[in-house]
Design a binder for these strands. Sequence first.
RNA 1: GCUUCCGUGGCCCAGUCGGUAGGGCAACUGAUUCGUAAUCAGUAGGUCAGGGGUUCGAUCCCCCUCGGGAGCUCCA
Length: 655
Amino acid sequence: MKVTLKDGSSKEYASSMSIYDIALDISEGLARVACAGEVDGEVKDLRTTITTDCTLNILTAQDPEGLKVLRHTCSHVMAEAVKRLRPNAKVTIGPAIDEGFYYDFDTEPFSREDLDAIEAEMKKIIKEGNRLERFELPREEAIKFMEDKDEPFKVELIKDLPEDSVISFYSQGEGFTDLCAGPHLMNTKGIKAFKLTSSSMAYWRGDSNKARLQRIYGSAFSNKEDLQAYLDHLEDIKMRDHNKLGRDMKLFTTVDVIGQGLPLFTPKGTKMIMKLQRWMEDLEDKEWGYVRTRTPLMAKSDLYKISGHWDHYKEGMFVLNEDNEDKETMALRPMTCPFQYYVYMNEQHSYRDLPYRMAETSTLFRNEDSGEMHGLTRVRQFTITEAHIILTPEQAEEELTRCVDLCNYVMKTLGIDGDVTYRLSKWDPNNKEKYLGDDEYWDSTQGFLRNVMIKNNITFTEADNEAAFYGPKIDIQAKNVYGKEDTMVTIQLDCAAAEKFGMYYIDENGNKATPWIIHRTSMGCYERTLAWLIEHYAGKFPTWLCPEQVRVLPISDKYIDYANKIAKELKACDVDVTVDARSEKIGFKIREARLDKLPYMLVVGEKEEADGTVSVRSRFAGDEGVKPLGEFVDQIVKEIKTKEIREEIPQDAAK
RNA sequence: GCUUCCGUGGCCCAGUCGGUAGGGCAACUGAUUCGUAAUCAGUAGGUCAGGGGUUCGAUCCCCCUCGGGAGCUCCA
């Protein structure tokens, strides 16, 4: 009989064989076999004997899907190991995730030593080489099965399954059987390389009111090389982590007595943010038709009562004088919306004035829970490129497209457009108290944003319960080096606020009409963007963003005057330049400039001074060599002006 | 906010089975005036995150607070 694989290859077998044995044969042993059992598109028991020509679908760990199966199986093996070491631990769920897998247990916390012991036990289990067998039970028997094993979480899971669903189990040898939809490896031996990376607390079903569980994270691969590469990758990531690198590079710091989530920007970090800010303000005002406002950082609580923040967002605000009857209750602003609304209402607007685009470099305060803060990506005070656009409903589609275009331009210029994904952030119809408005409002506004993205050929995902309380959002998401996702840019549609605040415009017929409002950022939050840039470039920023763009290195004290003359000329062209006038050897100065990740070093000595030249060293390809000063100045001024992103020469960090 | 791990000079780390602390790099001073990734010598710098407790005595043991990491929940 002839067995054909999904990839088109085929093999002849003389006699009948089980799927299990065929899979074993064609995939170089269990290491490569992730799962099997699909014959001609129909899922079969692995023990099914094949007697005629057929197409067999065998997943291998080379497929992303197969790797996922391998990791999921590894989570079962881990669960068995934990049950062996802690018979009283209750099992819950253990899925494969992006870079590995986890399993949650109801038990005492795990230490690193516990994880090592579990790893050792897992190796034993893998060595035993038990086959994973699937079987099904009717609903009542399934519940009883797990009740007998005293696994309350599994019982709850089964009870939540639809009445008519197939309830499947997988056993691996005598020791362990788990409720699971599958699929799995055929045999635990297929796990050739794994590592338990960390443990932490997690809530049952992600609900902070439910049981606290202990989660173990790990990863698994089909071979040791891949595992080692992954572990090396984890090390590499640490070098890019903005929270480490940003502090090392002296871009920002934090101080215990100042508080959590309140970073201090040092001169270098401040310089970078100012470069970003000046660019954004000029861009929005000069090229995209925005007017700029400057509004208070706090307001009476009355304002937030009108906006709805007092009801929906009070926990997130810093409230002042609430317990002091003699003083007005105030709050630091968590957003700029109502402030800019009052700017709009300061004068009457015709439909001819719309869209009216108000931008503000806006500092906001949000009272995040203490565990939420992280580096520059989650802070309690931050500054965003905020704007509110007041427009007629007919203008909304075009204006939303303009907002998306601006964001794309900004991200492209920063060189990070490849890092982002789009998300339509929707409300949660099952959680209505969290949101303003009714089904109709949300269906129509969400539909509107969806259409804008479709019309603009944007690939996007949709997510429930991610909207602002007043309207849906187009969120542009990016992942940090650890894979954790943050919103970088947000564009929100709000068809309700204008009415609440009594905003209007005069339409073609001279009547008052209620506008729509777009809340949007263009580059997002400066703190978060800086973090993102640090991680994306590993600290080697494009020249225009660097706090120090050029360092002049005189060979000896004799050439300091010439170095200063060069610096003066560059400064006159708005280049950030310093002179390393220390009495150090040139090799030492170069080393330090390299470690500081400077784009350009200009070495100057007797020859350069005599010829009016500079000896250029840089991070970029094709820049080495002696050239007239004027030529270098022209080059770098152009590079800064165009915000050029140049190709780095690969550097051996250890050198 | 919750679970867990952690907190020794600017940075990386030793160390004390409880007798108030060291090394490397950085900094500072002096010498050196040098041609593309580390010149030499010297000096200074820590109430061992902060507070409380146990003890004759705490950086070390216990408790609390603050701060940092990972994760959960939440969010730009």
